[in-house]
Protein backbone atom coordinates (compact mmCIF):
# COMPACT_ATOMS: atom_id res chain seq x y z
CA UNK A 1 0.00 0.00 0.00
CA UNK A 2 2.51 2.59 1.19
CA UNK A 3 6.23 2.35 1.05
CA UNK A 4 8.42 5.16 2.31
CA UNK A 5 12.13 4.84 1.58
CA UNK A 6 14.86 7.03 3.00
CA UNK A 7 12.62 10.08 2.99
CA UNK A 8 14.33 13.40 3.63
CA UNK A 9 12.36 16.64 3.64
CA UNK A 10 12.99 20.27 4.43
CA UNK A 11 10.97 23.42 4.99
CA UNK A 12 12.98 26.32 3.65
CA UNK A 13 16.47 26.01 5.09
CA UNK A 14 15.35 23.68 7.79
CA UNK A 15 15.92 19.97 7.32
CA UNK A 16 13.12 18.18 9.18
CA UNK A 17 12.89 14.58 7.99
CA UNK A 18 16.17 12.73 7.95
CA UNK A 19 15.65 9.37 6.32
CA UNK A 20 12.30 7.82 7.13
CA UNK A 21 11.64 4.20 6.23
CA UNK A 22 8.17 2.84 6.69
CA UNK A 23 6.05 0.18 5.05
CA UNK A 24 2.30 0.11 5.62
CA UNK A 25 0.37 -2.83 4.22
CA UNK A 26 -3.30 -2.88 3.39
CA UNK A 27 -5.48 -3.24 6.47
CA UNK A 28 -2.74 -2.30 8.94
CA UNK A 29 -2.88 0.37 11.58
CA UNK A 30 0.39 2.12 12.38
CA UNK A 31 0.75 4.51 15.27
CA UNK A 32 3.40 7.20 15.13
CA UNK A 33 4.47 8.75 18.38
CA UNK A 34 7.30 11.07 19.24
CA UNK A 35 8.20 14.29 20.96
CA UNK A 36 6.96 17.71 19.88
CA UNK A 37 8.75 18.96 16.83
CA UNK A 38 10.07 15.56 15.83
CA UNK A 39 8.50 15.79 12.37
CA UNK A 40 5.24 13.85 12.63
CA UNK A 41 3.07 16.52 11.02
CA UNK A 42 5.77 17.18 8.48
CA UNK A 43 5.67 13.54 7.46
CA UNK A 44 1.88 13.74 7.17
CA UNK A 45 2.25 16.95 5.16
CA UNK A 46 4.75 15.41 2.76
CA UNK A 47 2.44 12.46 2.18
CA UNK A 48 -0.50 14.78 1.47
CA UNK A 49 1.57 17.14 -0.69
CA UNK A 50 1.60 20.30 1.38
CA UNK A 51 3.14 23.34 -0.30
CA UNK A 52 6.41 24.55 1.14
CA UNK A 53 7.78 21.15 2.08
CA UNK A 54 10.58 20.02 -0.15
CA UNK A 55 11.54 16.38 -0.49
CA UNK A 56 15.33 16.39 -0.67
CA UNK A 57 15.83 12.62 -0.98
CA UNK A 58 13.95 9.34 -0.90
CA UNK A 59 10.84 7.88 -2.45
CA UNK A 60 7.24 7.23 -1.55
CA UNK A 61 5.28 4.59 -3.39
CA UNK A 62 1.54 4.35 -2.88
CA UNK A 63 -0.52 1.66 -4.62
CA UNK A 64 2.36 1.33 -7.05
CA UNK A 65 2.28 5.05 -7.87
CA UNK A 66 5.03 7.56 -7.26
CA UNK A 67 3.08 9.49 -4.66
CA UNK A 68 5.43 12.47 -4.63
CA UNK A 69 4.73 13.02 -8.29
CA UNK A 70 1.03 13.63 -7.75
CA UNK A 71 -0.72 16.91 -7.01
CA UNK A 72 -2.41 17.06 -3.60
CA UNK A 73 -5.88 16.71 -5.13
CA UNK A 74 -4.74 13.73 -7.22
CA UNK A 75 -3.51 12.05 -4.06
CA UNK A 76 -6.84 12.75 -2.39
CA UNK A 77 -8.71 11.28 -5.35
CA UNK A 78 -6.46 8.23 -5.17
CA UNK A 79 -7.66 7.72 -1.63
CA UNK A 80 -5.12 9.53 0.55
CA UNK A 81 -6.84 11.34 3.39
CA UNK A 82 -5.27 13.61 5.97
CA UNK A 83 -7.13 14.44 9.16
CA UNK A 84 -5.43 17.72 10.02
CA UNK A 85 -3.87 18.45 13.37
CA UNK A 86 -5.18 21.99 12.96
CA UNK A 87 -8.24 21.92 10.66
CA UNK A 88 -8.53 25.14 8.68
CA UNK A 89 -11.47 27.51 8.90
CA UNK A 90 -12.99 28.53 5.59
CA UNK A 91 -15.55 31.30 6.16
CA UNK A 92 -18.49 31.40 3.78
CA UNK A 93 -17.99 27.89 2.46
CA UNK A 94 -20.62 25.47 3.60
CA UNK A 95 -19.20 22.39 5.32
CA UNK A 96 -21.49 19.94 3.56
CA UNK A 97 -20.91 21.63 0.24
CA UNK A 98 -17.15 21.28 0.41
CA UNK A 99 -17.57 17.65 1.33
CA UNK A 100 -19.97 17.01 -1.53
CA UNK A 101 -17.62 18.68 -3.98
CA UNK A 102 -14.72 16.59 -2.68
CA UNK A 103 -16.69 13.37 -2.72
CA UNK A 104 -17.82 13.93 -6.27
CA UNK A 105 -14.26 14.58 -7.38
CA UNK A 106 -13.24 11.29 -5.81
CA UNK A 107 -16.17 9.49 -7.41
CA UNK A 108 -15.45 10.99 -10.81
CA UNK A 109 -11.89 9.80 -10.51
CA UNK A 110 -13.11 6.31 -9.69
CA UNK A 111 -15.46 6.36 -12.65
CA UNK A 112 -18.52 6.44 -10.44
CA UNK A 113 -21.47 8.75 -11.11
CA UNK A 114 -21.61 11.98 -9.14
CA UNK A 115 -24.09 12.08 -6.29
CA UNK A 116 -26.91 14.58 -6.38
CA UNK A 117 -27.98 16.49 -3.30
CA UNK A 118 -30.54 13.85 -2.29
CA UNK A 119 -28.23 10.85 -2.53
CA UNK A 120 -25.50 12.80 -0.83
CA UNK A 121 -27.75 13.65 2.09
CA UNK A 122 -28.76 10.01 2.47
CA UNK A 123 -25.13 8.99 2.55
CA UNK A 124 -24.03 11.56 5.06
CA UNK A 125 -26.97 10.99 7.39
CA UNK A 126 -25.63 7.52 8.14
CA UNK A 127 -22.12 8.83 8.64
CA UNK A 128 -23.30 11.58 10.89
CA UNK A 129 -25.02 9.05 13.06
CA UNK A 130 -21.86 7.00 13.24
CA UNK A 131 -19.93 9.96 14.57
CA UNK A 132 -22.82 11.50 16.49
CA UNK A 133 -22.29 14.71 14.56
CA UNK A 134 -24.46 17.67 15.38
CA UNK A 135 -26.68 18.53 12.39
CA UNK A 136 -25.88 22.19 12.62
CA UNK A 137 -22.18 21.61 11.96
CA UNK A 138 -23.11 20.46 8.51
CA UNK A 139 -24.64 23.70 7.36
CA UNK A 140 -22.08 25.94 9.00
CA UNK A 141 -19.02 27.29 7.21
CA UNK A 142 -16.13 24.81 7.22
CA UNK A 143 -14.71 24.68 10.74
CA UNK A 144 -15.56 28.31 11.39
CA UNK A 145 -16.19 28.79 15.06
CA UNK A 146 -16.14 25.03 15.66
CA UNK A 147 -14.81 24.03 19.06
CA UNK A 148 -11.53 22.17 19.07
CA UNK A 149 -13.31 18.86 19.56
CA UNK A 150 -15.91 19.63 16.89
CA UNK A 151 -13.16 20.29 14.39
CA UNK A 152 -11.56 16.92 15.07
CA UNK A 153 -14.86 15.13 14.88
CA UNK A 154 -15.56 16.87 11.59
CA UNK A 155 -12.28 15.56 10.19
CA UNK A 156 -13.20 11.98 10.95
CA UNK A 157 -16.70 12.55 9.65
CA UNK A 158 -15.19 13.70 6.36
CA UNK A 159 -13.00 10.63 6.33
CA UNK A 160 -16.05 8.42 6.87
CA UNK A 161 -17.73 10.02 3.87
CA UNK A 162 -14.71 10.01 1.57
CA UNK A 163 -13.76 6.40 2.43
CA UNK A 164 -10.03 6.71 1.76
CA UNK A 165 -7.66 3.78 1.35
CA UNK A 166 -4.90 5.49 3.30
CA UNK A 167 -5.92 7.73 6.16
CA UNK A 168 -3.41 9.72 8.15
CA UNK A 169 -4.83 11.01 11.41
CA UNK A 170 -2.67 13.74 12.88
CA UNK A 171 -3.38 14.05 16.60
CA UNK A 172 -7.06 13.53 16.11
CA UNK A 173 -7.39 12.75 19.81
CA UNK A 174 -6.08 16.03 21.13
CA UNK A 175 -8.95 18.32 21.96
CA UNK A 176 -11.52 15.55 22.29
CA UNK A 177 -13.19 14.98 25.64
CA UNK A 178 -13.36 11.43 26.98
CA UNK A 179 -16.78 10.63 25.55
CA UNK A 180 -15.96 12.22 22.23
CA UNK A 181 -12.75 10.25 22.06
CA UNK A 182 -14.73 7.02 22.39
CA UNK A 183 -17.22 8.05 19.74
CA UNK A 184 -14.60 9.20 17.28
CA UNK A 185 -12.44 6.13 17.89
CA UNK A 186 -15.55 4.01 17.41
CA UNK A 187 -16.10 5.77 14.10
CA UNK A 188 -12.54 5.09 13.04
CA UNK A 189 -12.83 1.44 14.03
CA UNK A 190 -16.04 1.08 12.06
CA UNK A 191 -13.99 2.15 9.04
CA UNK A 192 -11.28 -0.42 9.60
CA UNK A 193 -11.19 -2.63 6.60
CA UNK A 194 -8.74 -5.10 5.08
CA UNK A 195 -8.34 -2.71 2.17
CA UNK A 196 -7.81 0.41 4.25
CA UNK A 197 -4.65 1.43 6.07
CA UNK A 198 -4.40 3.90 8.90
CA UNK A 199 -1.48 5.96 10.13
CA UNK A 200 -2.37 7.42 13.51
CA UNK A 201 -0.22 10.18 14.95
CA UNK A 202 -0.73 10.61 18.67
CA UNK A 203 0.94 11.58 21.89
CA UNK A 204 -1.22 9.40 24.08
CA UNK A 205 -1.48 5.72 24.65
CA UNK A 206 -5.13 6.28 25.60
CA UNK A 207 -6.24 6.59 21.98
CA UNK A 208 -4.50 3.34 21.18
CA UNK A 209 -6.66 1.54 23.72
CA UNK A 210 -9.54 2.28 21.39
CA UNK A 211 -7.81 2.16 18.03
CA UNK A 212 -5.51 -0.75 18.56
CA UNK A 213 -2.45 -0.48 16.32
CA UNK A 214 -0.57 -3.30 14.66
CA UNK A 215 2.66 -1.32 14.93
CA UNK A 216 3.94 1.61 16.93
CA UNK A 217 6.83 3.79 15.74
CA UNK A 218 8.74 6.47 17.55
CA UNK A 219 9.78 9.43 15.47
CA UNK A 220 12.56 11.56 16.81
CA UNK A 221 14.75 14.08 15.08
CA UNK A 222 13.09 13.29 11.76
CA UNK A 223 13.86 9.60 11.96
CA UNK A 224 12.08 6.51 13.17
CA UNK A 225 14.17 5.56 16.15
CA UNK A 226 12.13 2.68 17.45
CA UNK A 227 9.36 0.41 16.21
CA UNK A 228 7.37 -2.26 17.96
CA UNK A 229 3.94 -3.67 18.65
CA UNK A 230 1.14 -2.05 20.60
CA UNK A 231 2.94 -2.68 23.89
CA UNK A 232 5.57 -0.12 22.86
CA UNK A 233 3.04 2.61 23.42
CA UNK A 234 2.54 1.47 27.01
CA UNK A 235 6.23 1.45 27.55
CA UNK A 236 6.52 4.95 26.18
CA UNK A 237 3.78 6.16 28.45
CA UNK A 238 5.69 4.82 31.38
CA UNK A 239 9.22 5.85 30.50
CA UNK A 240 8.83 8.84 28.19
CA UNK A 241 10.87 9.26 25.01
CA UNK A 242 14.33 9.74 26.50
CA UNK A 243 15.37 6.10 26.43
CA UNK A 244 14.36 5.43 22.82
CA UNK A 245 17.02 7.65 21.35
CA UNK A 246 19.85 5.64 22.78
CA UNK A 247 18.63 2.37 21.34
CA UNK A 248 19.22 1.53 17.71
CA UNK A 249 16.27 2.00 15.43
CA UNK A 250 14.49 -1.25 14.81
CA UNK A 251 13.56 -2.15 11.29
CA UNK A 252 10.01 -1.06 10.64
CA UNK A 253 7.33 -3.46 9.63
Amino acid sequence: MLEIRDLHAAAGDRQILNGINLTVNAGEVHAIMGPNGSGKSTLAGVLAGRDGLEVTAGTVTYKGLDLLDLEPEERAREGVFLAFQYPVEIPGVNNAYLLKAGLNEVRKHRGEPELDAMDFMTLIRARMKLLEMDDTLLSRPVNEGFSGGEKKRNEIFQMAVLEPTLAILDETDSGLDIDALKTVAGGVNALRDPARSLVVVTHYQRLLNYIVPDFVHVLSGGRIVKSGGKELALELEEKGYGWTETEPAAASA
Binding site: A48, G49, E71, P72, E73, R75, A76, R77, F81, L82, F84, P87, V88, I90, P91, G92, V93, N94, Y97, L98, L99, A101, G102, L103, E105, V106, H109, P141, V142, Q158, L162
Partner: peptide, 19 residues
Protein backbone atom coordinates in the same frame (compact mmCIF):
# COMPACT_ATOMS: atom_id res chain seq x y z
CA UNK B 1 -7.33 21.93 2.84
CA UNK B 2 -9.75 21.91 -0.11
CA UNK B 3 -7.24 20.17 -2.37
CA UNK B 4 -6.68 17.52 0.28
CA UNK B 5 -10.40 16.83 0.01
CA UNK B 6 -10.09 16.38 -3.76
CA UNK B 7 -10.78 19.83 -5.24
CA UNK B 8 -8.56 21.47 -7.82
CA UNK B 9 -6.96 24.78 -6.86
CA UNK B 10 -9.25 26.57 -9.27
CA UNK B 11 -12.36 25.02 -7.76
CA UNK B 12 -11.07 25.76 -4.30
CA UNK B 13 -10.59 29.44 -5.12
CA UNK B 14 -14.00 29.62 -6.76
CA UNK B 15 -15.56 28.00 -3.75
CA UNK B 16 -13.99 30.46 -1.38
CA UNK B 17 -14.76 33.51 -3.52
CA UNK B 18 -18.30 32.34 -4.05
CA UNK B 19 -18.70 31.74 -0.34
Amino acid sequence: YCRQRGLSTEDAVNLIVNG
